[in-house]
Design a protein around this nucleic acid. Structure first.
Length: 152
DNA sequence: GCCAACGTTGGC
DNA sequence: GCCAACGTTGGC
């Protein structure tokens, strides 16, 4: 089993939204690296740190898991969608998504500042300067550490 | 709102 | 295939 961090802007879709709907297709990703993770590497049962970005303060809000593996992202075929891509078609899809399922909301929100303060988390992509990738792998140790911080 | 970092586009 | 211009992300 692997571990991931996925960013979401809480104004668009927050951990509370995921809790309410239980499962959500992770559509709209239009970055090749993130797509490749979803298409090729994310498996059912993989655990996800649900990260709130572009908000104050940014940080990890809870846990989700992969509930459905790679399938074409239909928003790319929808001309009315903000994520429409004329180069993607049902016959030859360019963009893929996974579905994620709510697991828990942290008792304590783990802020980006707190992550930066921990030496053992210094390798995490999300704290590297200029890192914009919305889906990144994390190690089990990193995952477990942040989970513990979230229970405090 | 600013701006650094990064990804994508397109002319050559 | 290079690289300048442009657009986006996302912390601050």
């Amino acid at each position: 089993m692997r571990y991931w961090l996925m960013k979401s802007e809480p104004d668009e879709f927050s951990i509370d939204d995921l809790k309410r709907v239980k499962r959500e297709g992770w559509s709209g990703v239009r970055n090749y690296q993130a797509r490749n993770f979803m298409r090729d590497e994310m498996k059912c049962g993989d655990m996800i740190l649900f990260y709130h970005s572009s908000c104050r303060p940014p940080g990890v809000a809870g846990i989700a898991k992969v509930s459905k593996e790679s399938h074409p992202d239909p928003s790319a075929f929808n001309q009315k969608s903000a994520y429409y891509d004329e180069k993607s078609s049902p016959e030859k899809p360019r963009w893929f998504m996974v579905e994620v399922e709510f697991v828990e909301k942290f008792k304590k929100y783990v802020t980006l500042d707190e992550i930066k303060e921990r030496k053992t988390l210094s390798q995490m992509k999300v704290i590297q300067k200029g890192s914009r990738l919305s889906i990144t792998p994390v190690t089990k140790k990193e995952f477990d550490t942040i989970c513990k911080m979230g229970q405090a």
